[in-house]
Design a protein around this nucleic acid. Structure first.
Length: 885
DNA sequence: GGCAGTTCGCCC
DNA sequence: GACGTGCGAACTGCCA
């Protein structure tokens, strides 16, 4: 029925509030925060489209002296003050509504809830159908035959509509009983007390028995459990008060003419002007054409407006000449950037794009562009491009901008930014990615599609650069980006391109040996178990050990028994099968992950095999690198058996050497510096064994009295400090009770008061800024530091303590890498940097360079930055990585 | 057969 | 009630 009336009522406060916390704190070029207004607007546009309302109104809270506060002074008493970044957006939301000609209501001393309740009551009487849009479950109480409530779920993007039937299905309650629910359980966010200890589950159980708060209280004696009965009696008043607070007032003295809420259409031109001034670029293409747009507002085009022109090599020089100094580029690669096929190159300004198909070989005009130092070449991933070009014998000029690296430094906790996400988030272009093929099934992609996507990415890069650059400047991150991370990209590209030589014959031999022993172990285990089963299946293993053999199960996982090593180690003395399983696991890990993994990754180059890892420079929350395909940052060292694998990492030439340089205790030295703890600084200045020193302090003994257990415990505590683990984590590591672990930490802090003070200060600072920084200014956002959930907040607090330590150590070694590579190049050494493993660097060099390399690496690593304690690098040389220890 | 989720274990 | 990080192998259950 198209003539039916449909009134949509939006809870303006609730939706704006939710939008604010759901979206990152974006601001536009005028410095206005707009994330909440933006989120509200996306919701509004969606409602207009999906619901086709005939009538529309938005309600806002107004004033402080609400009726509820008269009843209960502490109402909303615990709520944090609305942040100014949010407060300043309410006027923007009202302006946006004005541009749509959508009416809004507010009344001094009343909340939006009550206004919505009152209007829906009148609408019901007039025979309108209403839809209430909110993030607040309280409004479910308004639901009736004529009123539906739409609730937002996590963020704003998902919503759920509730009719009376759905409320019954979800809660087993009538809409009005939602009030009773809240009366019993209360609401921490509004500081409505309810009955302490009664949550949703208990409240629902009670209401299933008796229909209302009053009845529940009358029959308190019949409630399950003595404690609950007592609480019901004790807090009866509170429950009744809470019910009153939760009841929406549907008779607010407000004069609403329903017909004035009629909404037919809006002037798209007016709205477009509004969006442009707020810089809601991505929302522009959701508006219809036409309207009375003012011409004064200039704007970047949307990606649909960018047509990518197919060109040939001959046209390239002329286009390049016409380009501005910063050129958006995208190298269209398929698959792994080291090996993958190069399909083409897209070149763009923010307004136009061109696509040059390539078939393997790079024409000289492209090479010229890549080596043109006068143009700033803007890529999404400079390291990938640089490496891809290196494999084709071309050196990318270093006058480049990396939008990936910049985006990462702005928000490192998000993990590796996805190209299409970044573009959508920052510019609002929704580019359909190309379909992904699999090794099995290749998908044919037309050249036109390739051009469309590559062209859009190249053009997006130009706009992204502007935004990222600006944001880096504002966040004081430009020096970190320009002087450290971007130069490091080129060093990493060198390393990835070099690769490391692998002795595959040796590796295969190790593999054969392991395979034989694994098969033998497997046969023995099956024999002992009396049945053949899949030893690699934790599920089957658990059934054998704990059901069939009846061993005591100590730990459970989500899906069944835990069979992890720490569980099995405790069982080993009781049954011989267990040690064999542990051995099987250990050897199996070495075989599948390392022997087979490395063999799969090794590529034949001339007469030798090499592995070329990829370092991810834009992924970790702390600023460390990570390594993939293969991961060369987790090659075994702890057990001799595993450590042997390092024999297969050999120099390019048999006469060359491997040189390994590792920072000694870099994290603890960083901690000593930033905490300025006297005792700790003293230990490092005198180059003492820090774990022994910690043991003497914590256990109050002389250095000679420190036994191996004390040192081990002290080491675990230091380890815990560096990695930000909890008392729980420490107790797991040391296999001691949580209480004892907490005591260790306490006595540690008593002996290192400077460290304690630092930990307290950094958490306080994190609460203030919602972020922490490293010595070189790397930032990590920590919104969870204000979480109400204890676990989430505690985690954020440990992160606040740990990130400056781990992140500063990452800064330091990165800087050393850039400096070392600079010296190697300037001195024309043949030595090559091969790997970085968080606190160590691996090189190879001809024998005659050993001395020079040792000297320069030590100097650059130790002198890279001046701290209040010395930095120390241990350097070892050998014929293989194993021997360089 | 592909995908996501889980468990396990390696490194710093 | 589950808590430093990241990568990857293998299994499992689910989908087509």
């Amino acid at each position: 029925m198209s003539d039916k009336t449909k009134l949509v009522l939006i809870d303006g406060n609730s939706i704006t509030y939710r939008a604010f916390f759901a979206l990152p704190p974006l601001s536009n070029s005028k410095g206005q925060y707009t994330n909440a207004a933006y989120g509200f607007t996306t919701m509004l546009l969606r409602l207009l489209q999906d619901e086709q309302p005939t009538h529309l109104v938005v309600a806002f809270d107004k004033g402080k002296a609400t009726i509820r506060q008269e009843i209960y002074a502490d109402y909303k008493g615990t709520r944090e003050k609305t942040p100014s970044e949010l407060r300043e957006q309410f006027p923007i939301v009202r302006e946006i509504l004005n541009s749509f000609d959508i009416p809004y209501v507010e009344l001094e001393g009343h909340e939006a809830d009550d206004l919505i309740g009152t209007i829906t009551k009148q609408a019901e009487a007039a025979g309108y159908d209403s839809l209430v849009v909110t993030g607040d479950k309280d409004l479910l109480q308004l639901v009736s035959d004529r009123v539906t409530t739409m609730l937002t779920r996590k963020g704003l993007s998902e919503t759920e509509k509730y009719t009376a039937g759905e409320i019954n299905e979800r809660y087993g309650l009538t809409p009005l009983q939602i009030i009773d629910l809240k009366g019993l359980m209360g609401d921490t966010s509004d500081n409505i007390p309810g009955i302490p200890g009664v949550g949703e589950k208990t409240a629902l159980k009670l209401l299933a028995q008796f229909p209302s708060v009053e009845e529940v209280l009358q029959h308190a004696d019949e409630a399950p459990g003595k404690k609950l009965q007592e609480k019901l009696r004790e807090h009866a008043e509170s429950a009744l008060l809470s019910k009153r607070l939760a009841t929406i007032n549907r008779d607010v003295p407000i004069d609403v003419n329903l017909e004035a809420l009629r909404f037919e259409s809006y002037d798209a031109g007016k709205v477009r002007d509004m969006f442009k001034s707020l810089e809601f670029k991505s929302l522009l293409d959701r508006l219809p054409e036409g309207g009375t747009e003012s011409e004064a507002v200039a704007d970047a085009p949307t990606h649909q407006q960018i047509e990518t022109l197919m060109i040939n090599v001959g046209e390239l020089p002329e286009i390049i000449d016409s380009l501005p100094q910063a050129v958006g580029l995208h190298l269209d690669l398929e698959g792994n950037y080291q090996l993958g096929e190069m399909h083409g190159l897209a070149i763009a300004t923010g307004e136009s794009a061109w696509y040059l198909p390539l078939d393997g070989a790079l024409p000289e005009q492209v090479v010229a562009l890549m080596q043109n130092a006068d143009k700033m070449k803007v890529f999404y991933d400079v390291k990938a491009v640089c490496t891809a070009l290196k494999t084709r014998g071309i050196a990318l000029d270093h006058n480049a901008f990396c939008t990936l690296l910049g985006s990462y430094l702005l928000a490192p906790s998000d993990g590796a930014p996805d190209l299409f996400d970044v573009i959508d988030r920052q510019i609002g272009w929704k580019i359909d990615p190309l379909p992904k093929g699999t090794p099995k099934k290749k998908v044919e992609v037309s050249l036109q599609d390739r051009a469309r996507v590559a062209g859009a990415i190249a053009a997006a890069n130009v706009l992204l650069k502007e935004q990222v650059e600006q944001a880096l400047l504002e966040a004081n991150l430009m020096p970190l980006y320009r002087d450290l991370e971007l130069p490091l990209s080129f060093v990493l590209a060198d390393m990835e391109h070099s690769g490391v030589r692998i002795d595959t014959d040796e590796l295969k031999e190790i593999g054969e040996n392991l395979r034989g022993r694994i098969e033998h172990l497997q046969a023995e285990i099956h024999e002992l178990a009396g049945v053949e089963f899949n030893l690699n299946s934790p599920k089957q293993l658990g059934e054998i050990l704990f059901d069939k053999l009846g061993l005591p199960a100590s730990k459970k996982t989500k899906t069944g028994y835990s069979t992890s090593a720490d569980v099995l180690e405790k069982l080993a003395p009781h049954a011989p099968i267990v040690q064999k399983i542990l051995d099987f696991r250990h050897l199996g890990k070495l075989l599948s992950t390392y022997v087979e993994g490395l063999l799969n990754a090794a590529r034949k180059q001339g007469d030798m095999f090499r592995v070329h890892t990829q370092f991810n420079q834009a992924l970790t929350a702390t600023g460390r690198l990570s390594s993939t395909e293969p991961n060369l940052q987790n090659i075994p060292i702890r057990t001799e058996e595993g450590r042997r694998l390092r024999h297969v990492f050999v120099p390019t030439d048999a006469s060359w050497k491997i040189l390994a340089a590792d920072y000694s205790q870099i994290e603890l030295r960083v901690l000593a510096h930033i905490s300025a703890d006297e005792s700790m600084i003293d230990a490092f200045v005198h180059d003492e064994d820090i774990h022994t020193r910690t043991a003497t302090q914590v256990f109050e003994v002389s250095p000679a009295e420190v036994d191996s257990n004390m040192r081990r415990a002290a080491k675990a505590v230091n380890f815990g400090i560096v990695y930000g683990i909890s008392d729980f984590g420490l107790s797991q590591n040391l296999n001691i009770p949580r209480k004892q672990a907490a005591q260790f930490i306490e006595s540690y802090f008593a002996k290192f008061p400077g460290v304690k003070r630092y930990m307290e200060d950094v958490v306080e600072q994190a609460r203030k800024d919602e972020s922490v920084s490293t010595l070189l200014g790397r930032k990590r956002h920590l919104p969870d530091i204000k979480a109400s959930n204890f676990n989430i907040r505690s985690f954020a607090e440990r992160t606040a303590m740990n990130t400056p330590i781990q992140g500063t150590a990452a800064d330091i070694i990165k800087k050393a890498m850039v400096n070392i590579q600079g010296v190697i190049k300037r001195q024309n050494l043949r030595a090559r940097m091969l790997l970085q493993v968080h606190d160590e660097l691996i090189f190879e060099c001809p024998p005659e360079e050993i001395e020079a390399l040792t000297e320069l690496v030590r100097r650059e690593m130790e002198q890279v930055i001046e701290l209040s304690v010395p930095l120390k690098a241990d350097i070892n040389v050998g014929d293989t990585w194993y021997e360089a220890k």
